[in-house]
Write a protein that binds this DNA or RNA. Structure first.
Length: 729
DNA sequence: CTTGAGAGGTTTTTT
DNA sequence: ACCTCTCAAG
């Protein structure tokens, strides 16, 4: 190892620990790097690339680096260009979807797509599915469109086309038919959804040996980040690209796999080990982030999981502060505690932006926001609608899509009557019927019907408008085209009239800005793999808008408290972290118990949450909280029990009997009429089989009374009082 | 075409 | 509680 380093300026490898160094300088072979939280994963990944280039084992041209998010891809390129003096332009780095998009653009003929194919985002896909179902006369009560979408996507993510799906009963067969028709419709309209991007690309590589070999020959080194989050299809795609000679450098952490619900297969790590003859897994277990109390807690929690590759984080930092646990009597009390604590921390000099407030589900942010707002503490909520998903932006993009290609039915339907121009449901139906008869796109049908009209109202007006846009946009720069579309469409005028339209106008302006930025960045990159002139800059911009939903909010840099779900916190770190709502049913979430290994995923989620903290960690829960408009009584999360008591400092006395607190001043808004019974909601009870629990609900009358009891680990149970022997505590 | 009442559904999320 | 969607009335 030392010998190899002679050719390398030490600066690159300086400061790496033994394991990191081993990973960075591995010879040409496939490798699995098990990188714990805070173990310097991104550093290893980027240094590996820099090292490969600097020691001239690879040129940037021969490297493919895959991530899940655009953010991670950007981060990687930024760090890399800081490390290396040379231009890394020739390197392919991006998300799975971004890279597949690039390949499909270059080889669109081979996969039978138009050069300007458009990408459907989730909302577009859903409306496309609804459309298909309408044509097919499918009952959307029996086949909820969202469910159909989930089905189609998970099929595709398994690498399956409709014909390959098994369907044993009539319901499944109908699903399969919808799947098939939906794909046909997409093909007709020249659009692809996210999963299709991957599947189509996979098929491109598997059906065309020469193309496959070309890329296999080119990408000798493939690096994959967050490998535990790959789905089946992504794994197959990687395998195909790697062929038999190339090596994959996979970095991941099975303990941080929290996306099984969207198709991630942790099992890919084991398969990878086997399929690529990985001889030894390099484990990065030294954590540079947290003090040991926090790490010990995280380790203690995660050891309760069965299926692990095995890994134990350690740190050379001291024990640090104990983990603070607070028990609120309700959600408001919990929030008030958090706010007080943050105020104190802030007074002592902790930056607000270095404090994170985490929760399991978005619904929990409301009460926290309320208290923060009252206290006058600035905060920022992550998640929610992103820039390119905003209605006004999507409208503008739909007009741009129609400029690029009128045959985009999804885009047409979105704006044919927005701003309203007198095209109602009836005229639309006629148009759709016409298109069906003529077997063409709605746009074609509309053109056939009206010929050349004048801009104005009605279908004539719409056709004329789009034609005018298409003509006038010729020769314009991208920002000018965007400006043209927002103006000519009448969107701007429409929002000027709207009393709450100011923000929307601002977003339209922001879209023009985004176009300017994109234009400056992309200029000079308009030649594709085969040296052909690539598609128009407009089509590129539209693809960009679909693939990158845009930065969350404009005021990102502000000094503010950070609020987000635990999922959103993955990959981030903060000096102080609050994890709130640690109650059975919330975290772990009730819904998780319906999924296979759901609890283990919840536990990994807890593990991720805990390992975000550098110095100080607060865990809190409430005895009762408002949820879905109902007062719910919970019991402390089992994850709290999984943390050794010696790591914990209880901030208030925690009673062992959940009911032994004063009822909150405000009683439940509409209390159920209390029948004559010894059972009150909130009453602690014991059951011979299920152990201790809390009564959370009841139904029926005196003769036939059933109570619902939260038994924590045993879950929620309905018990008939007549039969179940319950003891009050 | 716009508006408002009513129903239904609420884990997590990227592309 | 609150948000989104649908459908009927204006």
């Amino acid at each position: 190892m030392q010998l190899m380093m002679n050719s390398t300026p030490t600066s690159l490898l300086d400061g790496l620990n033994d394991k990191q160094l081993e990973a960075v300088t591995l010879p040409h072979q496939s490798a699995l790097i098990l990188a714990g939280a805070g173990s310097g994963k991104t550093r290893v990944l980027t240094t590996r690339i820099a090292w490969l280039i600097q020691t001239q084992q690879a040129s940037p041209h021969g490297i493919l680096s895959v991530t899940f998010t655009n953010k991670a891809a950007k981060e990687m390129l930024t760090r890399l260009s800081a490390m290396l003096p040379i231009n890394v332009r020739g390197m392919w780095a991006g998300t799975f979807h971004g890279l597949c998009n690039r390949l499909l653009r270059a080889h669109h003929r081979e996969v039978d797509l138009p050069a300007t194919f458009q990408i459907l985002d989730t909302a577009d896909q859903l409306s496309a599915i609804k459309r298909v179902m309408k044509v097919m006369n499918v009952d959307d009560e029996k086949f909820p469109p969202k469910q159909v979408m989930g089905y189609i996507n998970s099929c595709k993510e398994e690498g399956l086309r409709a014909y390959a799906v098994e369907a044993y009963d009539s319901h499944a067969q109908r699903m399969r038919e919808i799947f098939e028709e939906y794909d046909k419709q997409c093909q007709r309209e020249g659009v692809v959804d996210f999963a299709e991007l991957l599947l189509r690309c996979y098929e491109l590589l598997s059906h065309n040996a020469n193309i496959r070999e070309h890329y296999q020959h080119r990408f000798k080194y493939i690096l994959v980040d967050e490998f535990q989050d790959t789905n089946r299809l992504q794994y197959l795609w990687l395998k195909l690209l790697a062929g038999s000679d190339n090596c994959i450098f996979a970095v991941g952490d099975d303990d941080q796999s929290i996306y099984a619900f969207r198709g991630a297969r942790v099992g890919n790590m084991r398969d990878f080990e086997h399929d690529f003859n990985v001889e030894n897994i390099v484990k990065l277990e030294q954590n540079y982030r947290s003090h040991s109390n926090i790490l010990d807690a995280a380790n203690a929690i995660i050891t309760h999981n069965r299926n692990r590759l095995g890994k134990n984080l350690w740190t050379s930092a001291g024990k640090g502060e104990p983990i603070r646990v607070y028990e609120g009597y309700n959600d408001k009390d919990e929030a008030a505690f958090i706010v007080d604590e943050i105020k104190a921390l802030h007074k002592e000099g902790t930056e607000l932006s270095n404090i994170a407030l985490l929760y399991r589900s978005n619904a929990q942010s409301r009460i926290l926001e309320h208290e923060l707002f009252s206290a006058g503490l600035p905060y920022r909520v992550y998640g929610g609608l992103r820039f390119f998903e905003r209605a006004e932006v999507k409208h503008a993009l739909a007009y741009l899509r129609l400029i690029a290609s009128g045959d985009d039915d999804t885009a047409l339907l979105r704006v044919i009557n927005f701003p309203t121009r007198g095209i109602g449901a009836r005229s639309l139906e006629q148009l759709q019927e016409l298109a069906r008869q003529q077997d063409c796109s709605l746009w074609q049908a509309a053109c056939n019907k009206v010929g050349a009209g004048k801009p104005g109202r009605g279908l004539d007006g719409f056709v004329a408008l789009i034609k005018q846009m298409q003509e006038e946009s010729i020769g314009l720069t991208l920002p000018e085209q965007v400006e043209l579309a927002t103006r000519l469409s009448g969107l701007r005028d429409h929002y000027v009239m709207d009393k709450e339209g100011e923000d929307r106008i601002a977003n339209l302006d922001e879209l023009v800005n985004a176009a300017i930025a994109f234009n400056n960045q992309e200029i000079g990159m308009q030649v594709d793999e085969n040296g052909e002139v690539a598609m128009s800059i407009l089509a590129q911009f539209l693809a960009h808008a679909s693939l990158e939903s845009g930065e969350h909010q404009a005021d990102a840099g502000r000094e503010a408290l950070q609020l987000m779900t635990v999922h959103a916190s993955k990959g981030l770190e903060f000096n102080t972290v609050f994890i709130s709502g640690l109650e059975e049913g919330l975290f772990p979430h009730d819904q998780s118990s319906f999924e296979a290994n759901g609890l283990e995923e919840e536990r990994r989620l807890m593990y991720v949450a805990v390992t975000r903290a550098r110095q100080r960690l607060y865990l809190s829960f409430a005895q009762s909280r408002m949820l879905h408009g109902q007062l719910r009584y919970g019991i402390p999360s089992r994850f709290l029990d999984e943390i050794p008591e010696e790591l914990i400092k209880r901030l208030n006395s925690v009673s062992n009997k959940p009911q032994s607190y004063q009822q909150p001043a405000a009683a439940p808004a509409v209390p159920k009429p209390q029948a004559n019974l010894p059972w009150k909601i909130g009453q602690a009870v014991a059951h011979s089989k299920f152990g201790q629990g809390v009564v959370v609900n009841y139904e029926g009358n005196a003769n036939d009374l059933r109570v619902q009891v939260n038994f924590g680990k045993e879950g929620l149970k309905w018990l008939a009082l007549e039969y179940a022997k319950l003891e009050t505590l």
